[in-house]
Amino acid sequence: MLTLSPVEESILQRTFALGLMQAGLALAGMTGQEIIVASPDVRRCTPAEVIAMAGGADRVVVGIYLGITGSLSGHALLMLPPDGARDLARILLEGVGEEMPDADEPVDPTRPFELDPLSMSALMEVGNVTISAFLNELGMHLHEPVMPTVPQVVVEMAGAILDTVLVDLSMDSDQVLAARAVFIRGYNAIEGALLILPRAESVATLLSALGVNG
């Protein structure tokens, strides 16, 4: 069971908010785009509340999932709207020399959204860079390294991507600690959400590393 004192909660909020900011900066640096990191939200909540924080269950998103391993363990998920994800991939692949297969093709609304393998791998790299920046910030407080796993990209309903993660975390706790930030790109207001969900025992590890004792 995850219980936190107000002091612990506010220290975690500050630490995670800094990490989320670093993640946004890394994304901006990687893409050369102006990225606004908005609505950082760090709190203890129920699984249903986590899904609400991510923007709702049935919204189809491009989810970039990375597991977190090492002295801190848990899950990280970057969720982008399909069009935004495709745009982001295009920005990263510009000048790679590969012809983007669907750059000027009209989009058939009856066909489900798909990503080509090149865009998928570009988005995996987005996940890698973004989550690693977050983990580096947190890792400064921990004595052992924290690492992300190999990324996985899925196009799915947000709830369906999240529930497997939430099921994993809910085995030993009804509540989870969720850290979320919204990334807004330029004037297009393409929004993506970054969600970090540490395991209950990792929250305790992090708190003691931050110098808070129970």
Binding site: P47, A48, I51, G56, G159, A160, D163, L166, S170
Partner: peptide, 24 residues
Amino acid sequence: AGIGEMVLSRDPRSILVAYGLGSC
């Protein structure tokens, strides 16, 4: 019905929904 929740009704106009099931 959110994750871990349930909904009930006897009203024929009701539609009961569970959004975005993955492993659930």
